[in-house]
Amino acid sequence: MGDYDALLVLSFGGPEGPDDVLPFLENVVRGRGVPRERLMEVAEHYQGFGGVSPINRQNRELVEALRPIAGVPVYWGNRNWHPFGEDTVRRMAADGVRKAAVFATSAYAGYSSCRQYYEDIARISVVGGPELVKLRHYGDHPGFVEAMTDHTRQALARLGRDDARLVFTAHSIPVSMAETAGPSGGLYEAQLRRTAELVCRSLGRTERFDLVWQSRSGPPQVPWLEPDVCDHLRAIDAKSVVLVPIGFVSDHMEVVYDLDTEARQVADELGLPMERAATAGTHPAFVRMVRELMDEPEPVACALTCCPPPRRRPAQAPSGSQAP
């Protein structure tokens, strides 16, 4: 056990009103040279939902669900919007926190999904403040698998088709980033496929499932993981589909826009019956999982050479714009 005296939920952040959208997106893409017109295009996705991303509300709900079982005070901080991680850590220091477990709202290996959280921890740490220990990847944890199994089962019931094709989705990333994820490369895809296999096994499903990608962004000449979920729906030979967003732990903008809006439009055009499983959210098994991760032996931090940052090119902006 890591002997923690606090828990920090560290997340991406999101706007909570129309006036927040552009400043939030500017924080997300700072230093990437993204054209203003691309930023305005992504901003329209948010404005279509009143300028509010669901991610902050869902993180508040997760924090509240954790408080009764964490055994220690629970804090919350973000990378790109209030409450910023650095402000939260200063408050933790003032509260006398010595050592905190850090639960990142991203389950897998990779630069954006793991290494960048280590960078966040280094950036927001303060002299004399708490030691911050990032908890391990958890895509294969029984609590995460149970949550996604239950939500997939519920989606199948809503659809009324036990034989619907299961299409698991995750955030696409550049192929070059996927190839360098983990100590030997390829770990992002491998972990996601393992999660999909575990969910299928829990459902008693032995037939084919698909792992596809969503939320691709960046210049078209840069290869990203494929197929895109919308392209896959157009090509699939299935009578009905359940989308299972295992790459995300909450229903933030890229889930409600890329799946509930864009993919839904494609399915409706095709006359393809489709349901979308909920993300892990505050499922009791997922909440318990965080406590169980804290009780595990303290994880060893990855080597600094693991999951190197991508080479930035102009016009690379997340579509929704949540990193994986």
Rank of each mutant, 00 (worst) to 15 (best):
E189N: 14
V287F: 03
G50A: 14
D237Q: 13
G85S: 09
E197C: 10
R194Y: 13
A315D: 15
Q265K: 14
A196S: 14
D295W: 00
P142Q: 06
T282V: 15
C307G: 09
V255N: 00
V266H: 05
R123G: 02
L203D: 05
L25G: 04
A170D: 00
E64C: 01
G77I: 11
Q47P: 07
A170I: 09
S112D: 06
H141T: 08
P308M: 07
A94H: 08
L243T: 00
V52K: 12
V145F: 05
W76N: 07
R90V: 01
G77S: 13
R115V: 09
S125A: 14
L8N: 02
A164I: 05
G14I: 05
G71H: 02
R38P: 01
V34M: 03
G13Y: 05
Y188F: 15
E16V: 04
F49M: 11
F103P: 00
Y111D: 03
H232A: 12
D3V: 12
S125Q: 08
S217D: 04
E41H: 07
A190F: 10
L7F: 12
P308G: 05
V127M: 09
G14M: 06
I246H: 02
R32D: 12
E207A: 15
A238M: 10
V145A: 07
V266K: 11
L159Y: 06
M1W: 07
G139N: 11
L259K: 09
G17N: 09
M1N: 05
A70D: 09
G182D: 01
H45P: 00
F248N: 02
G13D: 05
L225P: 00
A190T: 14
W76S: 11
Q191I: 12
